[in-house]
């Protein structure tokens, strides 16, 4: 959180995924995926239920072992990566309800765990980080309430604040807007926008771009475990002009596409400006429909009804 864009600490990419295959019970859920994410990028990882997008993010955070290939964070192989405070993880579901009540402040404070050793009481730095994280998600006034008393959208923001409390440089979010109503989704987007402006790298798993569109730098689309698109989000006009039917490779000049070509040119640096002042860009962005299994007509971008219809991605990933 403390890094600013343009800080001359460059060198290694934030996330480096090289030829990664992830198998769950013998079935390859992620197949031979390679990608790099550089500091400050706002990346959306899309795909239908069961496409492997959640599994890929879980592999990036070490929650899923890789069957082949390697994941590096900040240049260090995941197995040897100890600076856990540099990464923030926001899980798919608001699993924030244990059998015992917990206050918002307590859940957010548990995010400091990667910076606190055992038997070390919380210090001023911990309290300040918790207060700041609550401030960023706009829940400072609810700190003393029980988490389960909040709405789904607010609970999701609590989980984001928990990830932020460690002051991470990269934030992995697994469908944070699932089951969140539109006003609260917009509050969430405002939060993510503020983080992105501060230079935090964001990797967001989503069914559909929806309200996050103005923030996105880069779009990744997964289908059946493979990365089938990696490039700029397209404006709606571009999508219509291309008019690609499902399954047909979409070729738009200047785009970085990988359809049917898994020999990803690894180490490709994604070069385009990080203009975080998106206020002037009113045109909604979409990833190419021919390359994702996303149905754009589904109302409420991350609506839970979508999950119910499409089956639980969580079980497969």
């Amino acid at each position: 959180m403390s890094r600013r864009p343009g800080t001359p600490e460059v060198t290694a990419p934030v996330v480096d995924v090289a030829d990664v295959t992830v198998a769950i019970e013998g079935r390859a859920v992620v197949r031979d995926v390679s990608l790099t994410i550089t500091a400050g990028e706002f990346v959306v990882l899309m795909g239908a239920n069961g496409s492997g997008k959640s599994t890929l993010v879980r592999a990036m955070t070490g929650l899923r072992p890789v069957a082949a290939g390697e994941v590096r964070l900040f240049g260090t192989p995941l197995a040897r990566f100890r600076r856990r405070d540099r990464i923030g993880y926001v899980p798919q579901r608001a699993g924030a309800s244990g059998g015992v009540p917990a206050s918002v402040a307590e859940v957010v404070a548990s995010g400091r765990i990667s910076r606190r050793g055992p038997f070390r009481p919380s210090g001023a730095a911990d309290r300040r980080a918790v207060a700041e994280a609550l401030d960023v998600v706009g829940l400072a006034d609810r700190a003393q309430e029980t988490v389960t008393a909040l709405s789904g959208g607010q609970q999701q923001r609590v989980l984001i604040a928990r990830a932020l409390a460690a002051e991470p440089e990269v934030l992995f979010l697994d469908e944070p807007t699932a089951g969140v109503d539109l006003p609260h989704q917009q509050a969430l987007v405002a939060t993510l926008g503020r983080l992105s402006e501060r230079g935090v790298t964001v990797v967001l798993v989503a069914h559909e771009i929806g309200v996050v569109a103005p923030l996105i730098d880069r779009c990744l689309v997964m289908r059946q475990g493979r990365l089938v698109y990696d490039g700029l989000p397209l404006s709606e006009a571009d999508v219509h002009r291309a008019g690609a039917p499902a399954g047909v490779p979409l070729v738009v000049p200047g785009l970085h596409t990988h359809v049917g070509d898994h020999a990803h040119d690894h180490g490709h640096q994604h070069e385009h400006g990080h203009h975080h002042d998106h206020a002037h860009e009113r045109a909604p962005h979409e990833c190419p429909p021919g390359h994702s299994d996303v149905v754009p007509d589904i109302a409420g971008p991350f609506d839970r009804t979508y999950d119910r219809r499409g089956g639980q991605e969580g079980s497969a990933s």
Binding site: L63, R84, Y89, P91, G95, G98, A109, S110, I113, A166
Partner: peptide, 18 residues
């Protein structure tokens, strides 16, 4: 703090390096 974090959300605790 450690036991609470784990009991509250196991996945998060794993990512946090516990």
């Amino acid at each position: 703090p450690q036991l609470f974090a784990i009991a509250q959300d196991r996945d998060f605790a794993v990512v946090a390096g516990l």
